[in-house]
Each structure stands twice: as structure tokens, then as C-alpha cells.
Amino acid sequence: RQVFSWLAIGPAVSNFVGPFCAGLLIDHAGAQAGATMGFRAAFALMAVLPLATWFWVRGTQEMPPVVAAEDGTRARAWDLLAEPGFRRLLIVNWLLSSCWDVHTFVVPLLGHERGLSASVIGSILGAFAIAAAVIRVLMPLVADRLRESTVVTGAMVATALLFAVYPLLPTAVTLGACSVLLGFALGSVQPMIMSMLHQLTPAHRHGEALGLRLMAINGSSVVMPLLFGTASALVGLSGLFWAVGATVGLGARVAWRLRGEAPAPPPHP
């Protein structure tokens, strides 16, 4: 729990740096040179970040793989889906990933509808990312007191409630406050999901389990924005928030059923 909480800080920080810096550049970079100059500057900055990442990870040493005992059969990654606990975990992970995606997708549209500038919209998204980073910094300090299924279930219920009120908020300040609360809820999830995934799968199959999880998340990131766009055209932005919130609220029951799949944390001395 502690290790995955520390690792999860990185994506949370990146979710702040990207929207916040892009919003500032769109509004202020080359404002006198033309409307598209700010967008070009934002894309240029984002293009530098993958190159910097490649430079930093060049010297990373990978640990040797865990070798499974030979039993005459070749396991397939898809076999993991036969495990009820692993299936439930993927469903929960997909629901929460969709909530993250819908927030990133809809907030710029909602902000534009409210007449907010790109800088303000980027700040709202940045506040969400900062909150996610803060909760992930705090979680390693209390990880031995937490139970994964309880944290995930609570996050899903909180997300459903926040999605219910999000489209009703009229100002940038209230949207930012709700974004912070949502960041606390969704930011707490990834370390718990990763911890449960490693407890539910054998050590020599962790790579396959991670691959299936990433495939589900990346597939969702491709498909869900298309569905979000179609749904918002039919039911509006508010209806989209409420539909996704209701779905994740109902999915909290699936997360609660994971309570018996992973062991509870040891008593704190």
C-alpha cells in the first residue's frame, strides 16, 4: 500500500502540470501574434516532456522476472478473467477510470459554457490533480491502517455524490472546490487497486494482470470520450455527469464485495 501510494504521486503531479501550463500558454503565450500561437506553445511544451522522460529512465535497471514452476501447461493472460475477484477489480477500476476521464473531458466544456477562460479551466483541472497528489502523499503514512475495499467503496460513493452536484455549481470557485474534493476521492483509489491486484494474482502473473488492467484503462480512454460526446449531445453535460455518477454509485456494491478477496491489514501496534 505504501509503495503504490508513493508511485501514484507521479501521475497526479503530471495531471496538474499539463492542464495548468497549457491553460496559461493558451491565454498568454504570443497573445499579440495570433489566436493559434498559444496553442502552438502549449503543444511544444507537451512535446518536450516525453523526451525528458526518456532521458531520465535510460539508466533504470529492471529486476529479474519471477519464474513460475513448470507444470506442463502454458498459462494465458485471459485465464485471469476466470477469477471472480479479478473480474470485479477490473470492473471497479474501469468505472473509476471513466469518472476520471469524464471529469477531464467535461470540465473544459462546462467551463466554456460558464464563460471561463482557458487559464481558469486549467486551474480547476490543476486543483483536481493537486488534491489527488496530496491524498497520495498522505496515504503512505496511514497505509497500514487502511483496508483497500473500504477505501475504494468510500471513494465511489463520494464520487457519485460529487458528480450529482458538480453541474449545478455556478462559479469557478465552487467548481474548483468540488474538483478538489473529487481529487481526494479519485486520487485515493489507484494505490488500493494496485495493492488488491497484487494480492489477487500469483507473483509470477503480476505482469499479465497489470497488462490486462492497462488494456482495459487504455481501451476505456479511447472509447469513453466518444460515448461522452454522443451522450452529452443527447442529454446535455448535466445529464452526462448524473448518468456516470449513478453508474459509479451502483458499482460501489461491486467494490464492497471485494472485501473478502484481499486480506485485511495487520493490526497497528
Rank of each mutant, 00 (worst) to 15 (best):
S220Y: 07
I217C: 07
R205E: 07
R213F: 13
E208K: 03
S220N: 14
L212G: 02
G207P: 09
M215W: 14
H204V: 06
S220C: 13
M196V: 00
R205T: 01
A185E: 00
F184G: 07
A216T: 05
G187Y: 07
M215P: 00
M192I: 12
M196G: 02
N218S: 14
H204G: 04
T201H: 05
A209Y: 07
A209Q: 05
H206W: 02
L210C: 04
R205I: 01
G183K: 09
M194R: 03
A203C: 00
L210P: 00
L197G: 11
S195C: 11
A185F: 03
S195G: 15
L214C: 07
S188E: 03
E208N: 03
G219K: 04
M196C: 05
H204A: 14
E208G: 11
S195E: 08
S188K: 01
M194A: 13
F184N: 03
Q199K: 06
L212P: 02
H198Q: 14
L197Q: 12
R205F: 09
H198L: 09
H198A: 14
N218L: 12
S220G: 14
L210F: 15
G219Y: 09
I193L: 15
S220M: 13
G219D: 08
H204K: 03
G183H: 06
H198P: 03
M194N: 14
N218A: 11
G219S: 05
H206L: 02
S195W: 06
M192E: 08
R213Q: 12
G219Q: 03
L212R: 01
N218E: 12
A216Q: 00
A203R: 14
G211D: 06
H204E: 13
S220A: 14
L210R: 01
L186W: 04
Q190H: 09
G211H: 05
P202M: 00
H206C: 00
S221D: 14
A216S: 13
L214K: 10
N218T: 13
L210Y: 14
S221R: 14
G207T: 10
A209R: 05
T201C: 11
S221F: 15
E208F: 08
S221K: 13
G183M: 06
A185R: 01
M215S: 11
L186V: 10
A185L: 01
